[in-house]
C-alpha cells in the first residue's frame, strides 16, 4: 500500500462550502415536506425522487469527496447508481399499472 503520494493534490473545500451545502439540503428537505402536503397525484413521487436525487448528488460529491477522487471511483459509483435507477424503473412498472 503506498501512502498518499505528493503529486496528488488534495482539494478540500472550505467550511463555508460545507455550511452552504448543509443549508441547501435543509431547504430541499423543507420543499419535499411542503410538496408532500399538496396533492400532485401521480407526479408527487417523481418530484420527491427528483429532489432526493439532487440531495444525494450534493452529499456524494461534496461531503463524500467523490468530486475530487480518481475516475475509477466515479465509474464504480455510476454503475451502482445506474443499477438503482433500473431497479426504480422496474418497480414503477408494477406501482403505476396496478
Amino acid at each position: 500500500m503506498d501512502q498518499g503520494h505528493s503529486k496528488h493534490e488534495h482539494h478540500t473545500p472550505g467550511y463555508g462550502i460545507y455550511i452552504i451545502i448543509w443549508l441547501v439540503l435543509i431547504g430541499l428537505t423543507s420543499i419535499t415536506v411542503t410538496v408532500a402536503g399538496i396533492d400532485f397525484g401521480m407526479i408527487a413521487l417523481a418530484i420527491a425522487l427528483f429532489i432526493a436525487a439532487i440531495k444525494s448528488a450534493l452529499v456524494i460529491n461534496i461531503f463524500m469527496h467523490i468530486k475530487f477522487e480518481e475516475a475509477i471511483f466515479k465509474v464504480f459509483l455510476l454503475v451502482s447508481g445506474m443499477t438503482l435507477v433500473v431497479i426504480f424503473l422496474l418497480t414503477f412498472f408494477d406501482v403505476y399499472n396496478r
Partner: peptide, 16 residues
C-alpha cells in the same frame, strides 16, 4: 432485473 418473478401471484401489475 428479475426479482419480481418470485411475486407473480402476489398482486403485482400485469405489465410488471
Amino acid at each position: 432485473l428479475v426479482w419480481a418473478h418470485h411475486m407473480f401471484t402476489s398482486g403485482i401489475s400485469d405489465t410488471a
